[in-house]
């Protein structure tokens, strides 16, 4: 919210007052050793669950991150059940768990999960748990002839769901528009209870308006003008993923570090710093590791946008 409001304020200033300028540059960067990246984001959707192991790359190397082969990856839950992740033969670095019975899903709400990765004689561990998630009651489509944020005659969407009563739930809201996941850093939508932060005290009510309308992409056409987020015949599918408080903190840091609108927004932005990780080398003096482990329960709802 704070970042959202800061960015909008900055955009307003920029549009009216001065033109700042930006230039893409190619500075020299210090070298550093590659580190292990463990990306373990599991959920209870009826599909295969994949954990990715990669190495970090030099910052300007925009190639596919090198996958890490030959590791042993397992997840054990608080009841003692062990789930094995087997490396794909054709895809280095992908470690897959497949349902053994049709319809089986990964994970049960309320259970804890421990991840163990063994690689080159070192062991890396992490713990998480699967939190609960509310159902999405509905999605509304709003047609506006004029609005301060969108161009004239826009269709925008809003989802309706209530945070579950009892403080401490955190969520990641993902939106899929026409089979494309809205995945830009500015589109990461997070909630703690129904609000933005732990100190907020927004428990048990409908998600706050900026969260409900976070399902709208800000797209620009070739001339740089904003276009309507949705058009008739578009389909929208909203998923709420439950995340732990640690994951919530991590994703907020990711937003701060990656959502750089540039221009006057930089006056309000934080300098570069590393995001956190919840994966640790059992030997504190051993190799470093980055990445994150989260087990999510997911609820989803879709809608087709109709002409007004």
């Amino acid at each position: 919210m704070k970042i959202y409001s800061q960015i909008l304020v900055a955009l307003l200033i920029a549009s009216v007052v001065f033109t700042s300028c930006e230039e893409v540059i190619n500075p020299d960067l210090q070298e550093a050793d590659a580190e292990l990246v463990v990306e373990a984001w599991l959920n209870n959707k009826p599909e295969d669950q994949v954990i990715n192991l990669m190495m970090t790359q030099p910052y300007f190397e925009s190639t596919t991150p090198p996958g890490v082969s030959g590791a042993v990856v397992t997840v054990q839950d608080s009841e003692g059940e062990v789930m094995n992740f087997v490396e794909d033969v054709d895809q280095k670095g992908n470690y897959r768990w497949s349902p053994s019975i049709p319809g089986e899903t990964f994970g049960i709400i309320g259970r804890g999960y421990a991840l163990t990765v063994s690689y080159k004689g070192e062991t890396f561990e992490s713990v998480s748990y699967m939190g609960r998630v509310p159902v999405i009651d509905s999605i509304s489509v709003i047609f506006e002839e004029s609005s301060p944020f969108y161009p004239a005659n826009s269709y925008s969407c809003e989802f309706w769901a209530n945070d579950l009563p009892g403080s401490g739930d955190a969520y990641w809201i993902k939106t899929i528009k026409n089979d494309t996941l809205l995945n830009k850093p500015s589109e990461i939508s997070l909630a703690f209870d129904a609000g933005f932060s732990q100190g907020g005290n927004f428990d048990g009510i409908a998600f706050l308006p900026p969260i409900r309308t976070s399902v709208n992409p800000f797209n620009e056409d070739a001339d740089g003008n904003l276009v309507s987020p949705y058009l008739p015949a578009d389909s929208i599918y909203v998923e709420i993923h439950s995340i732990t408080y640690e994951t919530f903190t991590y994703l907020n840091q990711v937003v701060v570090q990656t959502n750089r609108p540039g221009g006057f927004g930089e006056l309000f932005s934080s300098p570069l710093s590393n995001v956190s990780t919840n994966i640790f080398n059992v030997n504190p003096k051993g190799s470093k590791v980055v990445g994150f482990f989260n087990v999510a329960a997911v609820s989803g709802l879709g809608k087709k946008v109709k002409e007004n």
């Binding site: 590659a34 990306e39 990656t258």
Partner: peptide, 17 residues
């Protein structure tokens, strides 16, 4: 300045090792 990068959930993360 960062030294490295990695990708988390489809987002590019700059990293200072």
């Amino acid at each position: 300045f960062p030294t490295s990068r990695y990708i988390s959930q489809g987002i590019l993360i700059p990293y200072n090792a």
